[in-house]
Design a binder for these strands. Sequence first.
DNA 1: GATCCTGTGGTACGACTGTATCCTAACGTC
DNA 2: GACGTTAGGATACAGTCGTACCACAGGATC
Lengths: 202, 202
Amino acid sequence: MPRRVDHDERRRELTAALLRIASTRGLQAVSMREVAAEAGVSLRVVQYYFTDKRTLMASGIAELAGRLDRRVRERAAALGTELEPRAVLEVVLGAILPTDDDSRADQLAWTAYYAAGLTTPADAVDGRYAPDALERWLTGVVARAVEEGRVVADADPRIEVVSLLALTNGLVSSVLGQQRTVDDAQAVVRYRLDRLFRPAAG
Amino acid sequence: MPRRVDHDERRRELTAALLRIASTRGLQAVSMREVAAEAGVSLRVVQYYFTDKRTLMASGIAELAGRLDRRVRERAAALGTELEPRAVLEVVLGAILPTDDDSRADQLAWTAYYAAGLTTPADAVDGRYAPDALERWLTGVVARAVEEGRVVADADPRIEVVSLLALTNGLVSSVLGQQRTVDDAQAVVRYRLDRLFRPAAG
DNA sequence: GATCCTGTGGTACGACTGTATCCTAACGTC
DNA sequence: GACGTTAGGATACAGTCGTACCACAGGATC
């Protein structure tokens, strides 16, 4: 059996199996044996490529952070270099919402990790989905819109962005909990953007 | 030993112990033995008052739902019968934010239960913190404010309330994750209310 | 061709889990 | 005072967990 093996590739497969379990049966159902079974390999293989369970779990959150970040970045890049500030916000916030099965699964796993990290700061969220970087970028976008008079003049760019991100976060929760559809959530985001982006008033 | 015992009282103590564990070490750390140890009783006692683990866990989420609901209701009642719509919103939304250690602990436990329920709908959130009832009530408050001209005329009461609740929910997450202080979160809520409640424009 | 390293199967160990069972001390009821 | 019920102590059992260890087959290297 022992061909020469691409370790990174193998780890990716195992991590994907882990995330599949986490998003369907929860982080609690993730054991080394379950990951092995989901990936169709023996327990020993999981042990071999991730010595610890801690290492395995860490790989899961890292992959997840990468995926979510990639989703936002790709959509942002897809809309060209210079688009209206409003379109930027709509696309970026829309990229956070769980619009298809894949992003829904990732958001479920993400939520599980986040909740676990709240009470077990050990394996807490590291990459953290770079909310600060995102927040700063969008704040710049809104600030520019204010200068150009496309937004109510007395709007505070930072707080507007913070509240938009928190709103989106809250909507993600309710969509995952099936108290709301994605379409409803998107409508709420658009409503907020409509009220923010108009030269006249607040 | 066997005095006649108040079962409800005993169950409350055990449930409190469960929630203490859940809010500090996570739902994963909740076992029958741990609850017994936290409450200072033997395993048998936990078995006696909650036959199942399912029953025990269900008691936790029920107590939690009651506490959160009570918090909102108490604060709402404390501000008299007829206060400004804006004050109602500020108080109610403020009651959701984790402002002291107790409410923070409860929100942590709540988040843990919520996340668990997303992937294990079996013991899902039942009472659900009655978000629909809250949503309807606040929508009525905002609708009244619109009629009285205290709010921008073209505001949609329902979507305004939905977005305020989702925003608050998102802020709770970020406060629990210590990416933001409670004061910051309250400031964001006040900012949003400031912009909603002014006769002039949106 | 001998040797070393890499990848994997199999299995075992101790800790912990939920649950079940047996036993008994103190009470209410008669 | 006898007796059934209540409240709980103690222990056992089967299962699962992370981890450790042994064995070994197949390439790479010399």
